[in-house]
Amino acid sequence: MDLRVSRRRKIVNVVMLSLSGVCTALVMGVLFFILGYLFWHGAKSLNWNFLTQVPKPSGQTGGGVANAIAGSAKVLLLATCIGVPIGFLAGVYLAEYSGKTFAFTIRYVVDLLNGVPSIVIGIVAYALVVRPMGHYSALAGGVALGIMMIPIAVRTTEEFLRSVPNSMREGAMALGATRARTIFTVVAPAAISGLISGMMLNLARVAGETAPLLFTALGNMFWSRGWLQPIATLPVTIYNYAIAPEEDLHQQAWAAGFVLLFLVLGINVTARMIIARGSASARR
């Protein structure tokens, strides 16, 4: 065997493998540099007033985003009330009732919906809610985000219900439980931790959505009463402040970004920990 070729191969091996390691380090480095920057910069601009006050009129410094935090909570509550029940029940249908062909159709449509750009969902929510009502509203924002929550809710539900062993269903049905009773008292409770954490991930995903809110919930400098008025939300506030010319607003954008990221990643990590603990105890 030719020794030189063999050495060349070895060098290629080492070089390429190290290169892949370097790429990993590079990607991780860039990503964590920018996030670290956000945490550092955002935490610096954060203070108590920021979390408890509404924005000051333009030109004045100070003020906060309390109304945007509350607004995000309201819009997300609406979205959850729309997206999760529909998605969950449709997921139940897919996992427990449906035949093959129809299930394929629904799954395909769900994938389709999942792929629709969020800005397009915004247009549709505008056409469906804002235009008939004649004004921007929290409701319209909730509808837009609710639609966005449906696909993941369906997929999560189907996946976790399917992971419940069939012997559970048989056990319940052999005791005289109806199919529905079996699903809602045995199968769903058996999958509950997965379902909850899946829905949390889903919520975290739409919590940061900005585009569909731009012309549905719009924004608001003040507290918004009820569900039918324009309402401020954290992501839209960040966007508006970031593109504004005032340096003070940039600082506020950083702080708001920090709050949003903290919430989103917090929900994410919690949900993933629930899933991990669930699968660990299932193995035991």
């Binding site: 012997s167 048989e170 056990g171 005791l175 005289g176 439980a177 009773r181 045995v186 409770p189």
Partner: peptide, 25 residues
């Protein structure tokens, strides 16, 4: 009634497992 090859207790308490059939009925 039926008992299966592989034991299939529900992920509930012992009490709720035994009570399940009664509640269902």
């Amino acid at each position: 009634g039926m008992v299966f090859q592989k034991s299939n207790p529900f992920p509930k308490t012992i009490f709720d497992n035994v009570a399940y059939g009664l509640r269902v009925n």
